[in-house]
Design a protein around this nucleic acid. Structure first.
Lengths: 112, 112
DNA sequence: TCTATATATGCGCATATTGTTATATAACCG
DNA sequence: CGGTTATATAACAATATGCGCATATATAGA
């Protein structure tokens, strides 16, 4: 639960989300990731470092290149946390549905 | 896609995530939300403001109280964005499974 | 070895975030 | 009306973040 800080913080930046979206298509190098953006390469390198330290991406070495790819673990962890909220909302909806159904079918029903 | 900045940024703070977790149990007032924490009430008020402005929570007025509850829309939006990564990872796994299956069942299979 | 390519890091600056204290606003209660 | 409760805002300090520029490191290749 500690890494959620870093993971959500990393996701809060649109450049970093765009990088992740690109990585969803497959592994990519720093230069490839930097290409669509107007900011400098050092800035991209730092974004990548943030993503790496947050656990959202993994890297390997291929000569001078350091390709990046998505890291399943962190994404799963985030998903698990959000599931809590999702389920809470679903539960609320169910409850509401129940109330509405009760109102509809049994107006002023007797209940000991 | 614009609100994702604010939403993820809001989620990056553990106090705010704890507030959301509390709200998953149901509506709560500022004082109720502040109770488990050691930080001051103004600090909690500001966390709530951040959550509200990010769209993650909704509020109503009940006399002097301003109870908070989870907002389905923002949470759904986050979920949709993460689904992209989730599906990408699943696709990668499938591809890997395919490769492994091919290696296992048909070593050096001919393919025009 | 010299040079080009790929990536990382240090520095300085502008801006944002978080917490605290003090205070303001709003509604309830007697 | 006056006091209490609930919540918000202002002002300030400390810290963090993001960017560009310049530069360092690492590998490839002639």
């Amino acid at each position: 639960m500690a890494n959620l800080n870093a993971a959500f913080s990393a996701l809060a930046d649109p450049t970093r989300r765009a990088i992740l979206a690109r990585l969803a298509l497959g592994e990519a190098t720093v230069m490839e990731l930097a290409e669509p953006f107007q900011i400098t390469q050092p800035a991209i390198s730092r974004h990548i470092k943030v993503l790496e330290q947050s656990g959202l991406i993994l890297r390997r070495s291929e000569g001078a290149k350091r390709p990046c790819r998505l890291a399943p673990a962190a994404i799963t962890e985030i998903d698990r946390w959000l599931a809590m909220l999702r389920e809470a909302l679903e539960a609320n909806y169910s409850r509401l549905d129940g109330v509405l159904a009760a109102m509809d079918s049994t107006p002023t029903q007797d209940r000991p």
